[in-house]
Design a binder for these strands. Structure first.
Ligand SMILES: [Mn+2]
Ligand SMILES: [Mn+2]
Ligand SMILES: [Zn+2]
Ligand SMILES: [Zn+2]
Lengths: 156, 156
DNA sequence: GCTTTAATGCTACAATGTTGCATCAACGCC
DNA sequence: GGCGTTGATGCAACATTGTAGCATTAAAGC
């Protein structure tokens, strides 16, 4: 595993995993660093399982429970956010700057999840009196380009 | 396809559970009838557990698996729809006329789910080329009136 | 280095949902 | 109304996802 030297003048990777953890007063551990890096690398919100696989690939031994707790902590700290997705398993992605909540697309055939950065999840709907809105989740379901193409004849 | 018998001048309870099942070519069983009636009675989308409790209350013995399968069948037939809700458990509600998909509110404190009939879940967003939208789910999270009132000081 | 305690690893458990298969009962037919 | 067919059920066993308790390890500050 490579040490990230901090010649970080790149505007694209604004904070190193270590800085992010330290900034929230947490201890810098292999697991947390690797989880954040997996989320930074991933092109879509990752499931617990996918993150676990990434850690294995990086040669980082870990316990299931530890991973759950690392993810919980990241969410508590506002570093990552949880996405419901439509199956039973949560997906996780880094909280990119601010509270920019966007919609997600869930392919019902291959299970792939895609960020729709352009589609805000924010609705400002009429809630009954006394109700307080904390956040909104918008998930679109359907078939992704690959899946739609490969068996379009099913009609369903 | 048979026409509804015409003693039905009530516009409010359009179909009996039995008719609904028969119209979809299914066998009319105690469990299915009771599940549909529970969904018709319920004021919000019901979890598997809540439906099971309703069956027990109605004195209808049943197996966990049977209930799962009854619900699966209702969803397959388009009689009911599944809602993700944000916990691990599905919620179910009858598919009221047409494809009228509305948003739902999930209270993060008491777990209550509320239908927001007025808020359409439909977004017509820009999907990448080749993607096919089947349906969309919009879930708003926060505190319901009761929960918001009773401990507003937490701030979280 | 030494101490403190946050974080981990392990075990055991809970909640939700699924699969296979033998049995039962709904429904069509007579 | 009885009968046979087969869809629906009940039961046992299992899978997946996530939690709780507690002893041990190791990160951070001195
Ligand atoms: Mn996203
Ligand atoms: Mn609803
Ligand atoms: Zn797909
Ligand atoms: Zn509430």
């Amino acid at each position: 595993m490579h040490e990230m030297p901090d010649h970080s003048h790149s505007a694209f990777v604004p904070v190193s995993a270590r800085d992010l953890i330290a900034a929230h007063g947490g201890r810098i551990t292999r697991t947390r660093v690797a989880v954040i890096e997996a989320l930074q690398t991933g092109q879509h919100p990752l499931s617990h399982d996918e993150i676990g696989a990434a850690l294995n690939a990086a040669g980082i031994a870990h316990d299931r429970v530890t991973l759950y707790r690392a993810l919980d902590w990241l969410v508590e700290q506002g570093i990552a956010q949880r996405i419901a997705g439509g199956e039973r398993a949560w997906r996780f992605e880094l909280q990119s700057g601010g509270d920019h909540r966007h919609a997600h697309f869930h392919c019902d055939r291959c299970g792939q999840i895609l960020c729709l950065e352009d589609v805000p999840a924010t609705a400002a709907p009429v809630l009954p009196a006394g109700f307080e809105l904390a956040r909104s989740e918008l998930v679109l379901h359907g078939a992704c380009a690959d899946c739609g193409r490969q068996n379009d004849q099913t009609g369903k």
